[in-house]
Design a protein around this nucleic acid. Structure first.
Lengths: 81, 81
DNA sequence: GCTCCTTTTGCGGTGTAGCGCAAATCGGAG
DNA sequence: CTCCGATTTGCGCTACACCGCAAAAGGAGC
């Protein structure tokens, strides 16, 4: 399960996979975030215009966080120590 | 240099650090993205309303990518099993 | 085929990001 | 303290996310 993203498209797809990995529907996320199902759908399909707040709200209920890594390096040096 | 973020605030701060680590000014980013300096400033200061496209554009010039990890664990659970 | 759940798409309305442009404030170097 | 580049803030404007509500389209199972 690769949850790495360089584009809004990839981020949307990663969030969709993380959601499904938890066995949740868009409706489940909607209930926990007060976001419309349509908004979640839009983001998962690569909505680059989506607000950062929307992304963070969804990540919060999925218990996810971002790690910014340099493109190309699979692991941050700091992660090892 | 911890580039992990759970909130828009932390993401903004992480982007600022990544930018400075490259020795760039907001103006440098602006020139490479067609975003206003003011927009970049707003994002770095935690603008949750910022559009995802804005974040991705900045990350692109900084050669960064997202990695979605489960909150609290330094390694993604799925990576182990 | 049909049914049920999930996801996507659409419309009118409201709020706000990002724009150009500008001014104000901050911060380090001398 | 004085410069001067970097960052932040403000105004009027346009564009669009997100809302509620609804309907249409997908997809799995019977």
């Amino acid at each position: 399960m690769d949850l790495t993203a360089r584009t809004a498209d990839q981020l949307g797809e990663a969030l969709r996979r993380a959601r499904k990995a938890r066995g949740w529907t868009q409706s489940d996320i909607s209930a926990r975030t007060n976001l419309r199902v349509a908004t979640i759908s839009s983001l998962e399909n690569g909505g680059a215009g989506t607000k950062l707040a929307t992304v963070m709200a969804i990540m919060a209920v999925l218990k996810l966080e971002f790690r910014l890594v340099t493109r190309g390096s699979s692991v941050d040096i700091e992660d090892i120590f």
